[in-house]
Nucleic acid binder design. Sequence first.
DNA 1: TGTAACCTTGACGTTGGCGTAAGGTCGAAC
DNA 2: GTTCGACCTTACGCCAACGTCAAGGTTACA
Lengths: 155, 155
Amino acid sequence: MAEKRGALQIGEVAQRTGVTQRTLRFYEEKGLLHPPSRMDGGFRLYSEEDVQRVEHIRRLQDLLGISLADIKEMVDADEVLRELRSQYRPESAITEKRKQLEKATAVTEAQFAIVKQKMEQMREMETQLTERLRLFTRWKQELDELEKKAAPTRG
Amino acid sequence: MAEKRGALQIGEVAQRTGVTQRTLRFYEEKGLLHPPSRMDGGFRLYSEEDVQRVEHIRRLQDLLGISLADIKEMVDADEVLRELRSQYRPESAITEKRKQLEKATAVTEAQFAIVKQKMEQMREMETQLTERLRLFTRWKQELDELEKKAAPTRG
DNA sequence: TGTAACCTTGACGTTGGCGTAAGGTCGAAC
DNA sequence: GTTCGACCTTACGCCAACGTCAAGGTTACA
């Protein structure tokens, strides 16, 4: 008797996302994941959406190297997006929705700016590294030739 | 009587690089910076090269988000580069030099791979964010129109 | 009805990357 | 030769982001 169709226990989510169960609970504690539904006995039941959130969080962590506090801001913006998308009929509280939209836009733009800047710096680093690698191969060749001249034949 | 021409005390280096004096000593402790020369009294004397190293370290930290231990590997590779460049006349120990060169090449290539991968992921993230921003502006427009229709004139 | 695998909360431990305070020394100027 | 800011070492402190027990409850299945 499945408590909820297609729901996942914490162990499965951990496996699929590559984080530990502890980390999932920790994220919940910190508000990065909302409290999932539970089985009667108290076992957590996650959705596919939760899995995606975790993956998203990890990408942000890995790519942008920012704190979980900052990441929380960003995934909250995602939340706004989802909310606006689902109960999309804006039958009421338009100014409220507008406010949320502004906030989400601001956060997204901030994130965008970070990505842009980092990409720029990465491009610089990339050219430096390329140059360096060329230098290394040239030196290696020079060493090769030196060795040839030093010992034209051997045996 | 300058102890060394153009040498910098720790305070100046801290200011110019934007890190604290504690951080500079910490990096020294961890082997990321070599022990600088000292004045008779024990005050540290840094070179311009040291300043660049610090800036490099911070770039790696910020951009790649890797541990100082890993960064140490990388700046050690830089060191090899400098050594090979200065005492360039390879009058002796060619195999030794070749080994160093191999190591430096390997580390540089590893770093290059990280940069490449991150840039790729960042591009993905960039397109996602762009898309999202477009969505937001569209929604905002829709809200505008809804408001216009709800209250064509007001006052 | 047992039992192995899975889960729960709670609480303390760890690691990296520094912060910070204490108590003493150095250097240049007066 | 004293003053005062910059610097020294030593050493404990701190926060984020989890890791790691411990002691017990739950589930599924035979």
